[in-house]
Design a binder for these strands. Structure first.
Lengths: 333, 333
DNA sequence: TTGTACGCGTTATCAC
DNA sequence: GTGATAACGCGTACAA
């Protein structure tokens, strides 16, 4: 190494970390030598010594889903500002993958993880708290008050959607949901749905619920099934916008008008939702902020200062953003 | 460390790498000790020793753009299969960020980079080839035959779009492009546009071109500007789908019908394009495959076996996928 | 089959 | 100001 070629060894380290603590002359000498042998700093070795990898991990179901890419960007931006980099992995909603990937991340010595899991009460989370490993959950809400969380209250979100629909006069309200076993978010939204019906004294009808997978096509199929009902719903709540878009598509295949024939409300409010025809009414989830804030919380956790836990449970507001896919129920229907 | 608590030190390493080369008994003893002190393997330290980080980097403008999240997924999947993980960073189309982030990645000791840059002839790439650092370019095509590339021919893609429009009878064809200084992809698509016009003897009219930024809103603004032309275009080529979606939106604001009043063709064919009304005709770019194959090539490069360069320039096919946003020009227009 | 000892590229702690 | 030198946690001969 050309370091020695000129002079020292530990002085190089100083040049890198405290350039001012080195005489101007030797400093320049070292700089010159450095790009003579086109030296690049080895952050891994540095981390080995410091025991700080300057890396965090983010674990999501699928980066391809706009809601997740949005929140990922939030964590990347916050981490980037702190000089951290982020390793992102996809779990495709399968728990085994989650488990494996959390381990991979830990082996990579990430200092913390922003985690989205279907089972916030599962062994993964349990293990993490047992090991006192810094992490914060997003999207899925943990009952355990000891684990940090940033996200929205999905029950409330589901509630808001139905409240809105009922306010419009609808009483036969269907729901197309991401399979509960795949997503507890979806499950919670359904809970909100059910509770709201109850509140208004509307009987719950399981025939009006379909659980399916996360694709446009499935949304399309689902709506067709739903409309085949002898007494079909006049409004549909979809547990995410992708499903909603699929449903709209299916509806127009069937020659139905939105919102004249049936109202549709989605969840997430992904950017594309406002660009379909009619623009989709949806329960907004502030994804970017969620990622950003989750990372903020994570960085408070990493030094392990025992901060008040209350500070670590951030519930962001959902909001139904009204566009044109819903309308008041027509009389006589 | 509990390793010693029981027995050895380097044997632990063997247990990890060659479990079979260790006596059943001691092996189990070590396993037990490992999760007694809930040991996690330190992949960074391992890498330091091996000089292989088992990491690659991916550098893209913005993970939030569906086309990039799609290709990112492709590289993640391929890398994951090889036991590699990927660090992904966003450059927001700014060259200084690209430069800085490539360095960050190298300091992290990534073994290679899947790189999307606006300036495939710029100093970043030059430096990388000079250092013989493994990397493959995506999206933007490099003239330098020494650098690996996986992507589409954007000139050809632009050409196909215009060819299609002309085939439909259009002659006054506008273009809404991502600013050339921001994206050479956009520039190349415009080149294809221009050449195709020339081929058919249609005069090039700069008033029909707008360069703008990558947002729905900008697309919306752009189309309004374009339609204000005394002799407005009958068809518009948008250099990406986001812009196209914005344009469609703007058009309907103006009370124009698509495709009756004006035809729109996009580029990328992001998943959402088929869900707008009318479904968008677009030049398809196989993003997932691009990411996947780019990583495949990268892994051939990493061992530095001097493979034939020809093998390292993969041009995937574009294809105009016809939907319903374009129609033949009506007589008398 | 298992242990010793060195090296990987840094940082940190002392001396000089 | 600067230079030795011991970690950091792991691979890998080489020896036992």
């Amino acid at each position: 190494m050309a370091k020695k070629a000129k002079v020292s060894i530990a002085t190089v380290s100083r040049v890198i970390n405290h350039p001012d603590r080195v005489k101007e002359e030797t400093r320049r000498k070292i700089y010159k030598a450095m790009n003579a042998c086109n030296y690049v700093y080895n952050a891994l070795a540095g981390g080995l010594s410091t025991k700080r990898s300057h890396a965090i991990g983010i674990l999501i179901p699928n980066i391809t889903n706009p809601i997740f890419s949005e929140s990922t960007r939030g964590v990347q931006d916050f981490a980037g500002e702190k000089g951290y980099y982020v390793i992102s992995v996809n779990t495709d909603y399968v728990y085994e993958k989650e488990k494996k990937l959390v381990n991979v991340l830990r082996e990579r010595q990430v200092e913390g993880i922003v985690l989205t899991t279907n089972k916030p009460e599962g062994e993964i989370v349990e293990r993490l708290v047992k090991d006192r490993f810094p992490f914060v959950l997003t999207y899925s809400f943990p009952r355990n008050p000891k684990v940090a969380f940033v996200g929205v209250d999905n029950i409330q979100g589901g509630n808001k959607a139905i409240e809105y629909l009922i306010g419009l006069g609808h009483r036969r309200i269907g729901m197309i949901a991401l399979s509960f076993s795949l997503s507890d978010r979806s499950y919670h939204r359904w809970l909100g749905y059910k509770r709201c019906l109850k509140k208004y004294g509307i009987p719950y009808n399981p025939d009006l619920i379909i659980q399916t997978e996360y694709t446009f096509e499935k949304g399309k199929e689902a709506i067709k099934l739903l409309m085949r009902n002898p007494d079909p719903p006049t409004a549909i709540f979809c547990s995410n916008d992708i499903l909603a878009l699929g449903a709209m598509n299916g509806l127009s295949d069937m020659g139905k008008m939105i919102p004249e024939d049936v109202s549709i409300i989605g969840f997430d409010d992904i950017p594309f939702s406002k660009f379909v025809k009619p623009p989709l009414t949806s329960v907004r989830q502030p994804a970017y902020d969620m990622g950003w804030k989750a990372t903020e919380v994570l960085f408070e956790l990493i030094p392990k200062k025992r901060v008040h836990h209350s500070k670590h449970r951030i519930l962001l507001d959902t909001e139904v953003v009204v566009r044109q896919s819903c309308m008041p129920l027509k009389r006589g229907k």
